[in-house]
């Protein structure tokens, strides 16, 4: 009975959504060339950043990114707070049994390459797809591989939180530096260089690198916390 009601409600809801989005008018009445062309134009001419999405994420809508980083920070902190237990076993292992020697040898071998891949992704955030979030996530995934392949691989929570704090402070500080130099928060106050060079885009790659460090530290901490959770 409950299912029937739910399905009926969903049908109504879906009908409205379908009428909205599948209507040809929905495309026909669209009117948004201004923003897109402005962004594409200014990204090349002023910011000298090849990747427009990066330019939007870090510069035009940089405030969102600050909020987003904060959301991740909050999520990692909240995870620690929610799963908090009073007795804390120091000798807790993340995994119960050792992995096969092939898996552990392979992870050891591929781990630096994964970290390098992450670093590559966030250093080239303004040139190729990707950036701080993606790079940070890749690095965290690398740590995840090590954590599940080795029983005695441990990361210091303090180191993680120091990295995280410094990256976050760096982000806000760069924003405030723009505030002091150019007049607005997060303003691009550094020289922009030549399009498609590694050193271009002014403050954008710097902020994305900081975001990369921060996301990597946050996600690694998150995984580390949740892996230590034994039911």
């Amino acid at each position: 009975m409950k299912k029937a009601i739910v399905i009926f409600l969903l049908a109504v809801f879906g009908f409205f959504l379908a009428v909205t989005f599948l209507d040809p008018d929905f495309e026909a009445e669209r009117n948004h060339n201004g923003v897109k062309n402005f962004y594409l134009d200014k990204t090349v001419s002023q910011l000298k950043t090849a990747n427009t999405v990066t330019a939007i994420v870090v510069n035009f809508r940089g405030f969102d990114t600050l909020g987003e980083v904060t959301v991740l920070f909050l999520a990692a902190t909240a995870l620690g707070s929610i799963l908090f237990k009073k007795r804390h076993h120091i000798g807790d292992r993340t995994v119960l049994m050792p992995a096969s020697s092939i898996v552990s040898a392979g992870s050891k071998l591929i781990f630096p390459a994964i970290i390098l891949l992450g670093a590559y992704v966030f250093i080239h955030g303004h040139l190729t797809p990707g950036g701080g979030f993606q790079g940070g996530t890749i690095i965290a995934t690398g740590f995840l591989l090590m954590l599940i392949a080795y029983r005695d691989f441990s990361i210091s929570h303090n180191v993680l939180s120091v990295i995280e704090s410094f990256a976050g402070i760096g982000f806000v500080t760069f924003g405030l530096l723009g505030f002091m130099n150019g007049g607005t928060f997060l303003q691009n106050f550094m020289g922009t260089g030549v399009l498609n060079d590694l050193i271009s885009g002014g403050v954008i790659p710097v902020i994305y690198i900081l975001v990369g460090f921060k996301v990597a530290a946050e996600l690694t901490g998150l995984i580390y916390t949740i892996l230590h959770e034994k039911g």
Binding site: V35, K36, Y39, I56, V57, D64, E68, V71, F133, V215
Partner: peptide, 14 residues
């Protein structure tokens, strides 16, 4: 349009 992509990026992480 790059704007929706930037928004999705934010939304995925959130």
């Amino acid at each position: 349009d790059p704007v929706p992509q930037a928004l999705v990026l934010t939304a995925i992480v959130i």
